[in-house]
Design a protein around this nucleic acid. Sequence first.
DNA 1: GTGAAAGCGCTAACAA
DNA 2: TTGTTAGCGCTTTCAC
Lengths: 349, 349
Amino acid sequence: MKAQLSSPTNPTINDIARVAEVSLATVDRVLNARPGVRETTVAKVNRAIEELGYVRDTAAAALARGRFYHFTFVLPQNDNAFIALLEQQINMLALTMRHERTKLSAVRVAAFDPVALAKAIEAIDPATVDGVAVFGPETPSVRDAISHLKANGVTVVSPVADIPSSERDHYIGVDNVAAGRTAAQLMGRFLTGSSGKILVVSGSMLARDHLERRLGFDEVIARDFPDLDVLPSVECRDDPALLRQLLPAVFADNADLVGVYSSAGGNEGLLEYLAQDPTAKRPVVVAHELTDLTRPALAEGWFDAVISQDAGHLVRSAVRVMRATSARIPINSAQERIRIEILLRDNLI
Amino acid sequence: MKAQLSSPTNPTINDIARVAEVSLATVDRVLNARPGVRETTVAKVNRAIEELGYVRDTAAAALARGRFYHFTFVLPQNDNAFIALLEQQINMLALTMRHERTKLSAVRVAAFDPVALAKAIEAIDPATVDGVAVFGPETPSVRDAISHLKANGVTVVSPVADIPSSERDHYIGVDNVAAGRTAAQLMGRFLTGSSGKILVVSGSMLARDHLERRLGFDEVIARDFPDLDVLPSVECRDDPALLRQLLPAVFADNADLVGVYSSAGGNEGLLEYLAQDPTAKRPVVVAHELTDLTRPALAEGWFDAVISQDAGHLVRSAVRVMRATSARIPINSAQERIRIEILLRDNLI
DNA sequence: GTGAAAGCGCTAACAA
DNA sequence: TTGTTAGCGCTTTCAC
């Protein structure tokens, strides 16, 4: 069936060679901008390419090149549910990427520990990988470690939290300032008519994603919601137990606490605290990342909104970008844009 | 550089043939589940596949098959900004898909006109396409036209608005009921403390996406916001002028109109109406689809929220799904899930 | 500077 | 039921 359909066969390099009256090798040199071809020959070939409307067949090119790619993710080692999601997606994608001559791996390193992270990055032999995705704090030691990778021709991307001061090739993740602004807008709107204090739970001042969220959050509250006061961040290092322990004092000291912006991990501690005192007036809660923890919290009304990013998209995007960067081919930035997802109980997925 | 890296060369069908002591052709038959191989031989080959950890190289397979794909989109012909976005994305993707041996095209057909749509679908020669994406109303004539395509081996998907009663292979788009619920939740929350009427602007009762949104919207308002009353839908057929003309009466008849849910096109008419009466108390407005029209409306505060879906993702997804269905290979449903995006002025992109 | 020729891993006639 | 063989379109030595 459809035999005739399968035949509007595109021009190949053979056709170009014929039309341009050169050999296959020369066409290839021109196509791949390799040196050692006379100007006039280049022009002849390009004219033929133009004339025939040639488009390179990526499958054939990939096969002939026969190159293998190896990319590795460096992730924080803690029991953050979102990180677990990321790792799961990496493992899933690894399976399908084998068909595309690319190998994926992941290493875990102590969370919020720049020195350990730098060590882990330095432990990666640049000769054995084509790209590394580094998720961690932006500190001098981390920057240096990334610099070392780059010096050895390795592609580096920073997923989730950007490391703009390093030589990383790309950031893969949401605009965290905008995410913070969005959280503030929702919080403020959901608190129409109320006034009082807002608690912001953060992971660490080292975490750029958390910092940026706080920045955006403050900006919008200050601009649009003068009746709301944002308290200094509580740093919980994504540790539910620590957060659980810190909360009573915060609530005790601020009787007019009307909202909680949980911009980091540790939501379990927050939920435990909220559940333990059913008499208290429940604050409006906006949290981050849709996980097995936040999903039920949203469904049952403990959380009012969750700002999230798709872990699958993030991982696929990181790999596509590393692959494209390593192979020096262009990136479709629209496809790689990670969306700020807003989840209410009504669009839960 | 990295010469040794490029060598952890995967096993090929040659290796399998050697280990299983059969020919390449037999391995190929087993791999592609082609008939005419003895049970015991199949087992031998599968054992070798297992043992060697074989993974098929998709690039090589694609090259050897040398098949071309042709997919076409059937889109409503009106000046809806979202549809323009879709068409633009189709044209953009068409350029890159040429490298993957697939051709994309699009035809436009009168909007909200099931007969014209059915005719247009029937005009497609099943011998010249591998897949058709049909965006339009769910009516018997459309169903029959789709049925005809399916009978001739053509893959059919329905983007944006589902046609579940047809034989379409897949729906590509957001859960419109959930989108409506989300709109209602935002509307209700943004109207905390107010009571009054809500106007719902729809395109047509024929449009399943609009119907489903209304369904979800009503459900949540009824459940969570008893102080709000939803008026019967105003059908504007995505026509700004018609909407502009209908609005004065609606506002005049309902002095307590506090919200507008614009679930379809025609937003230009709504904006014109709102701008023309600066003295009126502005209703909370939730609209659909981020376009050159709704983006500034959101930024300037005329709209409070926009529910959207990524046109680029939608088109890429439709093409991936048609390709996978035509080639009988599995779909990564997580990747193809189109997200309900919520846009506030603070996460505008 | 340029060309000839041997594959890359898989598929699909055609034979046997 | 199984095997042989000639490619798919491109890249890459190596020779001229």
